[in-house]
Design a protein around this nucleic acid. Structure first.
Lengths: 136, 136
DNA sequence: TTATTACCCTATCGATTTAATAGAGTAAGC
DNA sequence: GCTTACTCTATTAAATCGATAGGGTAATAA
């Protein structure tokens, strides 16, 4: 299940990508346009800024803006920042790998085998989509 | 994230599929072999029985067994029973569809567009795998 | 310089879900 | 008729999620 955090983050990013220029957009404007709780959105945009996807400008006329061109922002990056691991189990995760404590042998684990395929196919989708592809 | 319920369920099913015959296997044996809490496993096997994937036999020499041949049990069925919707958002779910209350227009929603692709590719994996494919 | 604007951060909270446990009930077989 | 093993209900602790509140701080315009 996709978290609201990710959902809202994607919507906000798409909204920013759809802007004419790269001028800062206020949180309140994004929140209003996308029907998102403003305070909740604040925390989401903050993490997006900390990971280098967004920039921000304080004071009058300030707000958030995209640092890079939307077509140079792959969905793999965005999803990992917002949702975390793309894999459904840690033992098949590329960036967040963890060994299962049950499960003596990974190579002969049926769950592992299946989830590896799911991860690869999902990854393929995220690799083939940039933020620019999400703009209607 | 895959729930433990699904993980345990898949392991139990794979174990049953790997048996020589179709003789009932006791819960305790499955639990021991797969390192699963027996009581928790009980409830999982129960739902698998109620949905027609497993059969059970009471009394001495009883236990759970597969009703169909493993190669006739697609992963789509198993995953939907254990994990629920395959889609990451209800608005792109085939079997558990729900409209988003925020989001005025589904067709122009960026999240919808992306998650539709993820659903299709994941579905493809589950369609191409039966329980028989999981047995090592 | 000063007031304003808007970002930044911490803490909290209720609701929900998850994983696990306990215990009693019931049906089948020897 | 007694044992075995499945069946069901209830409870619980822990974790996570979504949201809210409130204050702090930095940058900009006037």
């Amino acid at each position: 299940m996709l978290s609201k955090k990710t959902k809202y983050g994607l919507k906000a990013l798409t909204f920013l990508a759809s802007q004419k220029g790269r001028a800062p957009v206020q949180i309140s404007e994004i929140a209003k346009h996308e029907n998102i709780s403003q305070k909740f959105l604040e925390s989401i945009l903050l993490t997006l800024r900390k990971t280098g996807i967004l920039g921000s400008k304080k004071g009058k006329g300030g707000g958030y803006y995209l640092i890079k061109d939307p077509k140079d922002i792959p969905m793999t990056t965005v999803m990992r920042v917002l949702e975390g691991p793309i894999a459904m189990v840690p033992c098949v995760s590329l960036n967040f790998y963890e060994k299962c404590e049950d499960c003596p042998d990974e190579a002969s684990c049926s769950v592992h085998k299946l989830m590896l395929q799911v991860r690869d196919s999902t990854l393929e989708v995220f690799k083939n989509n940039t933020l620019a592809d999400l703009v209607p």
